[in-house]
Write a protein that binds this DNA or RNA. Structure first.
Lengths: 161, 161
DNA sequence: CCTAACCTTGACGTAGGCGTTAAACCGCCC
DNA sequence: GGGCGGTTTAACGCCTACGTCAAGGTTAGG
């Protein structure tokens, strides 16, 4: 049972803090990306700090990796299994059950890692190219300016400005 | 007028080489991301190698940066202006027209650069975190294995540690 | 008790990014 | 000149990731 004194948040606060809309939070819950939060008497959703972290995590996966919510669901599910695994203080039978879960989690994280790795490499490459182009542009700009000053010294047809 | 001997490609070949569908190519054209290609007598589209590059460029922007096609359109348009600017051998009036175009292009590329930079930084951070987690998992896995061997030797005993 | 601010479920709408026919047309080979 | 495979436009469809009402229930303050 969760600590009664823990600071729970209503959906509006979570929305504000995470930068997503309330609709999005309900949507994620619908889609199984967020586990159904606890409720207060009247039915209002009560989120924990953990849930906030989860939302932020989801958004990072979306924005940075650009993976679909379906995939993100798989990822966060595997992580959820891990939390449980860490929480259980050795219900002690089924060690290889635990091992299987751990292996699954490792797979997931390795998957994420390889995606991130590949993307960072490609982006570093792109970054270098962009830098190169900016240099080139700078050169051109200088050439343009020189060209102009030469025309100022030896004016051709200058349009009235 | 383009070189008549140049190797032009039909839509199917371009699709195959770029990994996008024919539908996507026509769609990009519709949306103004690809300039309308030349046609052969019967009306079939004829793409140049340049067009292929362009498609690949578009896809990189999509996949890596995750920007919307509308934005990508702006980007490729600015680049198109640059091509022209570089192609014109000094129609020599309107130097500051050129300068404005160049400045616009610089803005665009700087925009891309800052996006890429920010994303790479965030991804490097994420990468580090993932690496950390993989290490942790590895430790856990070892602990699990040790736990198992100890139980095999002295069942029910708690490991000192 | 009343009201404002917040929340609930449900249902429908939408924007982006293509997929999928359909029906006719083109090019090439035998 | 008939067949076959690639291509054309046009139109409708679809999925994702939410946005946007609508109609009502809840909570806290005065």
């Amino acid at each position: 049972m969760p600590d009664v004194d823990e600071a729970y948040l209503q959906i509006g606060e979570v929305a504000e803090r995470t930068g997503v809309t309330q609709r999005t939070l309900r949507f994620y819950e619908e889609k199984g990306l967020l586990r159904p939060p606890s409720r207060m008497v009247g039915g209002f959703r009560l989120y924990s700090e953990q849930d906030v972290k989860r939302v932020e995590h989801i958004r990072r996966l979306q924005d940075l990796l650009g993976v679909a919510l379906a995939e993100i669901k798989e990822m966060v599910e595997a992580e959820e299994v891990l939390r449980e695994l860490r929480a259980q203080y050795r219900p002690d039978s089924a060690i290889d059950e635990k091992r299987r879960q751990l292996e699954r989690a490792i797979d997931v994280v390795q998957g994420q890692y390889s995606i991130v790795k590949q993307k960072t490499e490609q982006m570093e490459e792109m970054k270098a190219q962009l830098k190169e182009r900016l240099k080139t542009f700078d050169r051109w700009m200088k050439e343009l300016n020189e060209l102009e000053t030469k025309e100022a010294v030896a004016p051709g047809l200058r349009p009235p400005k």
